[in-house]
Computed example of a mutant assay.
Amino acid sequence: MSDNHAPRTLSQRLGWTGTIVAATLVFVFLMAPIIAIVPLSFSSSTYLTYPLPGVSMRWYQDLFTSDKWMLSVKNSFIIGIASTVLSMILGTLAALGLASWKSRLKSLVMAIVLSPMVVPVVITAVGVYFFFAPLGLTGNYAGLILAHTALATPFVVITVSATLQSFDTNLSRAAASLGAPPLLTFFKVVLPLILPGVASGALFAFATSFDEVVTVLFLAGPEQRTLPREMFAGIRENISPTITAAAVILTIFSVALLSCLEWLRRRGEKLKAAVH
């Protein structure tokens, strides 16, 4: 028995070792381009070259003192926050409606709602441009906010719908039986329990808007250039190490968003455990 057990143990160890090695190689492959950018952002050279001729903070200083870059950062936050708020409202209402709707058309409607995630962004951007142009929604904030809302809302629908799978509808029925109107039931009973899902969807929506560049290329005017749009223009027109500084800031920002998502996930699990 021990002889038969030893080969199995050895094969398991070899399997785990192979898995760890493969996962490590994949991780290095994915992270290498990001890690390579970080030292370049501290280079004293005006060219993106290795080895670094010296260390300098000039590109971060240029990023935070340039009117052009600061305007793009401000535009990204304005458009991102506005589209996130709209997508939170629309996505949450859509998820609640779809969760309680019993119809054979439910799958079709869900597919239509989630279609911005499936359709290539360039096709969506072209369609939005031709739809918005006659309405005067190109070259202004309103058009960009509405377009980003359409792209971000599916993420809210998915996260809220996933949270509603474990939601006990008897709680809302109990509130209604005690005389609570629907609006009060939503804010006092439903929303606190699905809040982690709503917040997670909001983070995904904000990240989608903040990182989006294709729609901005079609709809934005000179005053609505976002940070990704400015980086894209810098790569095409004049490659400056300031772009690497912006990339490092965006990477740190993305890590912060992922940390928030992990915290919300744990909070959601604690709420589910408390309810059950």
Rank of each mutant, 00 (worst) to 15 (best):
A94W: 00
S43A: 08
K74Q: 11
F42E: 02
A82C: 13
I81A: 11
A22F: 13
F42W: 07
F64R: 04
T24Y: 02
D62Y: 05
S103A: 06
S44L: 09
T46W: 11
L48I: 12
I78N: 03
P33L: 06
L86H: 09
S115A: 15
V26F: 11
V73Y: 01
V109N: 03
V55W: 14
L90A: 13
A94L: 05
G18W: 01
S45M: 10
T92H: 04
M31C: 11
G97D: 03
I20F: 04
M31V: 09
L105N: 10
I37L: 12
L96F: 02
A23H: 09
W101L: 12
S103D: 05
A32H: 03
V38Y: 00
G54F: 05
F42Y: 09
S44E: 14
S76F: 00
S56R: 10
V28K: 11
V38F: 03
M110T: 10
K74W: 06
S66E: 04
T92R: 04
W69R: 04
V21I: 15
L25N: 07
T19L: 15
K102C: 07
D67Q: 11
V26A: 15
G97A: 03
V85W: 00
G91Q: 04
A32Y: 12
V109P: 05
I112V: 14
L114C: 07
M88C: 13
G80W: 00
Y47E: 15
G18P: 03
M88P: 01
M57T: 11
S115R: 08
K102Y: 05
K68C: 00
T17S: 10
S100A: 12
P51N: 11
S44F: 05
Q61I: 11
V73W: 01
V55E: 07
I89P: 08
N75P: 00
L114W: 07
S56W: 06
A22I: 15
D67F: 06
V73S: 01
P120K: 12
M88K: 05
G97K: 01
P53W: 07
A94R: 01
F27L: 15
G18Y: 01
S66L: 02
A82H: 01
V73M: 03
L40R: 07
T17P: 00
T46S: 15
V109L: 10
R104H: 09
N75M: 01
P120M: 13
S44I: 08
I20A: 15
K102E: 13
L108F: 09
A94K: 02
F27G: 08
W69A: 08
D67Y: 07
D67N: 12
V118S: 14
A36W: 03
V113D: 07
L40P: 04
L52I: 14
K106N: 11
